[in-house]
Design a protein around this nucleic acid. Structure first.
Lengths: 109, 109
DNA sequence: ATACACTACTTAGTATTACTATATAGTTAA
DNA sequence: TTAACTATATAGTAATACTAAGTAGTGTAT
């Protein structure tokens, strides 16, 4: 899907948090994952900037370890603060989603 | 709801387009409307910058007319391009909403 | 051994957007 | 005439995703 950039602001961060929340992972894997679920236009660089930002904000536990195949990976997990921020993201998202559904449904009335 | 700023990127424009699509309106009224439906933290200035942007992009038919009570108003309607962009907004929104629901539902599995 | 593909991470610079703060001004009622 | 309400505009800021480019380890085919 093209032209999603502005709509992704804030959302991409939430998606990445959610993915990390489902189990230890790393940047390259997250990028592949996003491609697979339909976000074909999200580039690697974008994902890494999100990760570094989340790291700086202190939401992630980070561990650099060797990979069996390829260069070393930075493995991420959510810490307590990260889990809290993930919850907040979903709250905000569902607030917005509910509002937008209401707006759209007013059409048919 | 606080801290919605980043999530509103792109969305606010869509909401304003949708509101205008429901019938001729003007900035001040749109602002009041947003307050009423739960977006208490969206300031007047924000709405006007959106409107001027949409105007510049050529999505709106504009007509400045006197008001019965108060200063003159700029009345807006969607032109064909605006209607097209509104449709595109909803397409993008529902794409994203569907994806996010899928991500969230993976939790329970 | 060498070249290539794949894996994996980083970063500088850009564009877009919502927000803050402030300014301007017409209208109405006290 | 003062205050409250209506109505619009705009300069500057912060946050975020995107582009483009670079670095480097590992595995495979030639």
């Amino acid at each position: 899907m093209k032209g999603l950039t502005e709509l992704l602001k804030g959302v991409l961060e939430g998606i990445v948090l959610q993915k990390i929340g489902q189990g230890e992972t790393y940047g390259y894997e997250i990028t592949q994952y996003l491609q697979n679920i339909g976000f074909e236009d999200i580039a690697e660089g974008t994902v890494y900037t999100v990760l570094l930002r989340l790291e700086k904000k202190g939401l992630l536990h980070v561990e650099k370890r060797k990979s069996e195949l390829g260069p070393p990976r930075k493995f991420y997990r959510l810490n307590d603060f990260g889990k809290c921020e993930l919850d907040k993201f979903w709250e905000k998202w569902f607030f917005l989603a509910r509002k937008l559904n209401e707006l759209k449904e007013n059409d048919s009335k």
